[in-house]
Design a protein around this nucleic acid. Structure first.
Lengths: 186, 186
DNA sequence: GTCGGATGTAAGCGAATGCTTACATGGGGG
DNA sequence: CCCCCATGTAAGCATTCGCTTACATCCGAC
């Protein structure tokens, strides 16, 4: 039943390994040899199945980030993302968001994916307020989520890194509601 | 008057170039050859004056970040940092903070500097509230600043990237005051 | 003047990187 | 059975990286 030669399984193993390593180390510090090694296959297969390291990275971003967004309705998105982020162990750096954050601006397909992802989150959040500058407010809330992730993963900042998930979610959603609550249009 | 051979000036030129390039590209994507080239000197001098790329990076962090913190009293720190961040052009990536953000976790002296810097900012912010979880609240506000910087520099996210500085500062300080204002203890 | 150390340069070393190529192998269809 | 191509491998290529070494050159001390 086990097929030792299975292109689909190999391709998936490469994607899994890449997701983990890009998230842990970022784009630059992850080598194609590391990815192939973790997947247990020859590195040449990475290029056969994905073409280039850049293309594989773009695939990782597109695949992972969509899951995060589709889990929650807009009004629970902030709280759910925060809880998910905080419930993981502080330095668990294979969170999908981290791969995005860790990657600087290299002119690959990943740039497009990254920008598109930001737009999708912001659009979901901006639907929560009817303020004139709804999109800016949504950007600010998105920035907060991003910043919390960075402080936990890159800085390992205490006490945030080991803080209680519900406490953090409560504080942030309370403060963010100042920006995102529905008000009288003015 | 101009001294063509001036160790101090050369050293400073290297630090300036490194500050700019680390901020723009992050640690990994900045090469010692680029730094030396921008400074207009031979790359061997970088190693003579700073020992290693890691040590130079740590020096950049320590030098730049202190200036930011010492400019403002705690009660104006958030607003001032936001204004300074927003008043610069959206993708001006040589902001001191960005060098910190762009660098992943490599076990160099920079790790120490980075952590110490976070502590200093958080301490200043936490003095603004007497809530029991003051340090956590300070971390969250610091995270917000960090996230805004990331969204502007890494994502170039619109409308945040080109938003009015005062508007952003007003929105953020207003929302953050929920976390940082002085309240009755207990 | 000249000697010596401070300052700067040119060249390159060894290792690592993304990617390619030439080849082995194995399993399903004729 | 056997052939063929999908699958996988080993080896290496060209480049770039951080860093070193060997060597010029300038300036101040005496």
């Amino acid at each position: 039943m086990s097929r030792p030669r299975d292109a689909a399984a190999t391709k998936a193993a490469l994607l899994d390994a890449a997701t983990k390593l890009f998230g842990e180390r970022g784009f630059d510090r992850t080598t194609v040899r590391d990815i192939a090694s973790l997947a247990g296959v020859n590195q040449a297969l990475l290029f056969r199945y994905y073409g280039s390291k850049d293309a594989l990275f773009a695939t990782v971003l597109a695949t992972q980030s969509r899951e995060l967004l589709e889990d929650s309705p807009a009004e629970h998105l902030l709280r759910n993302v925060l809880l998910r982020m905080m419930e993981e162990k502080p330095r668990r750096e294979d969170h999908p968001l981290y791969a995005v954050l860790r990657s600087s601006h290299h002119d690959s397909a990943a740039e497009v994916v990254r920008r598109q992802l930001g737009e999708e989150y912001a659009r979901a959040l901006s639907s929560l307020t009817d303020a004139k500058d709804a999109e800016l407010r949504a950007d600010l809330v998105l920035a907060w989520v991003v910043g919390i992730g960075v402080l936990r993963s890159v800085f390992g900042k205490q006490p945030l890194a080991n803080a209680d998930a519900d406490t953090v979610a409560a504080l942030v959603t309370q403060a963010a509601s100042v920006l995102l609550e529905h008000t009288e249009p003015g």
